[in-house]
């Protein structure tokens, strides 16, 4: 994210604080995909991921008075998203069958590319089954296109930890994919 992008966010949030809902729409349009991706890997099926995205934005709106331009909006948003996700997982205790349901849903729509999609589904499953700490950095990096420093800020961990977690996550993903191949 560029400095200019961050400034836009701040400007929009200040406008939202002043009562401008249309500025909030800009924020929603900008970040909804990124949030959706984030929740998608939390064992949330498509509907749940949408609902969690909606809940997160609702909380951001309700907490808008607490937002201070001193903090990056990005960080503010994803801390709320993370807490929403943690709360969701705690309640749901991450039942993998929901993820399976989601895969089945995808399956219905993708008959033509069955083999290719099978691999993608496997990869999605592998990512979603990573330990939470590792999954967060993978999802934020790949599916929210965040720089490591941003991830560190959001997760409140040192930059070095982001690097080592990402490395370990990729190692685990590779091992799991290799294991599946050898099982076949």
């Amino acid at each position: 994210m560029t400095e200019e992008d961050a400034n836009h966010d701040i400007q929009w949030m200040l406008e939202v604080k002043a009562g401008n809902k249309e500025s909030f729409r800009k924020i929603v349009e900008k970040y909804q995909q990124s949030l959706l991706n984030f929740f998608h890997f939390m064992h949330a099926n498509s509907q749940e991921a949408e609902d969690l995205t909606q809940d997160t934005f609702l909380k951001v709106y309700l907490y808008r008075e607490k937002y201070s331009p001193k903090a990056k909006f990005n960080t503010f948003l994803f801390r709320i998203a993370r807490n929403t996700g943690i709360d969701y997982i705690r309640k749901k205790k991450a039942v993998p069958t929901d993820f399976e349901d989601d895969l089945l849903e995808d399956n219905k729509e993708t008959h033509d590319f069955e083999e290719e999609n099978e691999k993608k589904r496997e990869l999605k499953k592998v990512v979603s089954e990573l330990p939470e700490k590792l999954k967060n950095v993978v999802v934020m990096s790949y599916y929210q296109e965040r720089k490591y420093q941003e991830i560190a800020d959001i997760l409140e961990i040192p930059l070095g930890t982001v690097k080592s977690r990402m490395n370990y996550a990729m190692k685990l993903i590779k091992e799991k994919i290799d294991r599946k191949k050898s099982d076949e």
């Binding site: 909804q32 998608h40 949408e50 609702l58 309700l62 990869l123 990512v127 790949y142 994919i177």
Partner: peptide, 26 residues
């Protein structure tokens, strides 16, 4: 692995989700 992760397609948020979110605001 990086190439595979980068090529993974996820469900897309559409205009409907935006409207749903905007409508849910108090």
């Amino acid at each position: 692995i990086d190439a595979k992760l980068s090529s993974l397609e996820l469900p897309q948020a559409g205009d409907l989700l935006t409207e749903k979110i905007m409508k849910s605001l108090p």
